[in-house]
Amino acid sequence: MAVKVTCNRCGCTATISSSSIESDEVKRLYCCCKNADCGHTFVMDLSFSHTLSPSALDIPDEVLTRLHTSTRCEQQKIFSRLAVP
């Protein structure tokens, strides 16, 4: 999925000419408005907000192994004991 950036001066679409990683959760986007009459160049920050569904990568290996060998009922019990941050 492509990120659509809008110029805050004229409302037209802008292209991202380059970017830099500021941290694990922030990326700086260097943008240029596609409207020739505007020509605004600007910087936007793209940042992580929050998690909607935890990553499966956050599940410990021993829990994954147990899940693969458990019945559906046992799996539900395992998940009810997990404390997801």
Rank of each mutant, 00 (worst) to 15 (best):
M1G: 14
M1A: 12
A2I: 04
V3T: 10
T6A: 09
T6M: 01
C7P: 13
C7E: 03
N8P: 15
N8L: 01
R9N: 09
C10V: 12
C12P: 02
T13C: 03
A14G: 12
I16N: 05
S19V: 01
I21A: 09
S23N: 03
D24F: 02
E25V: 14
E25H: 13
E25C: 08
E25Y: 06
V26E: 01
V26G: 03
V26T: 12
K27L: 12
K27E: 04
K27S: 07
L29A: 12
Y30W: 03
Y30Q: 00
Y30I: 02
C31T: 08
C31S: 11
K34A: 00
N35A: 15
A36N: 06
A36S: 06
D37R: 13
D37K: 08
C38T: 09
G39S: 02
G39V: 01
G39M: 03
H40M: 05
H40A: 02
H40N: 13
T41D: 01
V43F: 04
M44W: 10
M44A: 13
D45E: 08
S47C: 07
F48D: 07
H50R: 15
T51P: 09
S53V: 13
P54I: 06
P54F: 04
P54W: 07
S55M: 05
A56S: 13
L57R: 10
D58N: 12
I59F: 00
I59V: 15
P60T: 02
P60W: 13
E62S: 08
E62Y: 15
V63K: 08
V63Y: 13
L64M: 12
L64S: 09
R66L: 15
R66H: 05
R66P: 00
L67T: 04
H68Y: 11
H68R: 14
T69S: 10
S70G: 02
S70R: 10
S70F: 04
T71N: 06
R72S: 07
E74G: 07
E74I: 02
Q75S: 14
Q76Y: 12
K77P: 05
K77M: 15
I78E: 06
I78P: 09
F79Q: 00
F79G: 04
S80N: 11
S80W: 00
R81D: 02
R81Y: 01
R81C: 03
L82C: 08
A83M: 02
P85T: 14
